[in-house]
């Protein structure tokens, strides 16, 4: 499995519910590691997850997950995947140990193995002390942890998380993100995090896929967004912009012409200070009217992609 270049590969994926088309020809190669699936409501994130799990028939195109065809090998795929659904869901009449072990049995674990593993993962997600408690008394954060435990019980290769921090308080959210980071970066599980919360993606993912109106609007490494944040600025105004360009380039920064001015990518430094210093050195030759960070943070990329 580690040899796979893409954990998910789709070609011309079209998904529809009756006449309503929700995915419009998605071509995607999701690399190993942790990827964030970003998009506003109705962008097609959940439909994408359902398609790759083989829960709904694909209308056109094809999808492969871990090298398996999502329609033909749906059950084999679900044996290797752990899903953390978005909404609260419990198996009634069970405590956390029973529910987690039961989920392991449904995947194909022997009863004793599932029980032993249930204790392990419940401790891992922080429910060790509460594992025999009535689920009715569980807080939102505990329910999310339980959903994570039932997804991890059979040690999946790929973990799908649908809005895992929804409705959680900041400490609870941070704890869940830490668990996701840990399984992804330290334990080698591939992760797909579907969310509308950009910080969650920034904190846990290597790659971001932006979906908008059933299409892939953008894919990019998260690191690139973080690196570019605070380094790219748009400059506009009146005066000798040729000389400004030259001075900035002499200082080692990259400059590109735009219709209304220049886009400057700073070399190493962060913040507007290096540009201001050059502008001040030009005195009366330059009148700066516009100096803003250009849209290269993840937030800006997302907004541009869905605009």
């Amino acid at each position: 499995m580690n040899a796979l270049r893409s954990i998910i590969r789709t070609r011309g994926l079209v998904q529809a519910y009756g006449p309503k088309i929700v995915l419009r020809g998605i071509d995607l190669d999701v690399p190993p590691g942790a990827s964030g699936l970003l998009g506003p409501n109705g962008a097609g994130k959940s439909s994408f997850l359902r398609s790759i799990l083989g829960l709904v028939p694909i209308r056109e195109g094809r999808a492969e997950v871990l090298g398996l065809d999502s329609q033909r090998d749906a059950l084999a795929i679900r044996r290797r995947i752990g899903l953390v659904p978005e909404s609260d869901c419990l198996v009634p009449g069970m405590n956390a140990v029973e529910m987690t072990a039961y989920c392991g049995q449904l995947v194909g674990m022997a009863r004793d193995d599932a029980l032993e593993r249930a204790h392990q993962v419940l401790y891992y997600v922080g429910l060790g002390e509460a594992r025999y408690r009535d689920l009715g008394g569980y807080s939102q954060g505990m329910k999310q942890r339980l959903k994570l435990a039932q997804a991890l019980v059979h040690d999946p290769d790929l973990l799908l998380l649908d809005e895992p921090t929804n409705g959680m308080d900041p400490p609870g959210r941070e704890a869940i993100l830490e668990l996701i980071r840990d399984v992804s970066r330290n334990k080698g599980l591939h992760v797909i995090l579907s969310t509308h919360l950009l910080p969650d993606v920034e904190e846990t993912c290597d790659q971001v896929i932006v979906l908008h109106e059933g299409r892939v609007a953008e894919t990019r490494p998260v690191a690139k967004s973080i690196i570019e944040a605070g380094r790219v600025f748009d400059v506009a105004g009146r005066g000798d912009f040729d000389r400004l360009r030259q001075l900035l380039m002499d200082a080692g920064h990259s400059v590109e012409d735009r219709d209304d001015g220049l886009r400057v990518t700073l070399n190493g430094a962060l913040g507007v200070e290096p540009i201001l210093q050059v502008a001040e050195s030009m005195g009366e030759e330059l009148e700066l009217r516009h100096l803003v960070e250009a849209g290269h943070s993840l937030q800006d990329s997302f907004m541009e992609a869905v605009r």
């Binding site: 799990l53 829960l55 749906a74 059950l75 084999a76 679900r78 044996r79 995947i81 752990g82 899903l83 659904p85 909404s87 609260d88 869901c89 419990l90 198996v91 009634p92 009449g93 989920c103 449904l106 995947v107 194909g108 039932q150 997804a151």
Partner: peptide, 18 residues
């Protein structure tokens, strides 16, 4: 009815079950 009330169906069908 209880599984539907507790939304357990999505847990069942995230496992290899039809």
């Amino acid at each position: 009815a209880a599984d539907r009330r507790f939304k357990a169906l999505q847990l069942y069908f995230s496992k290899p079950l039809t």
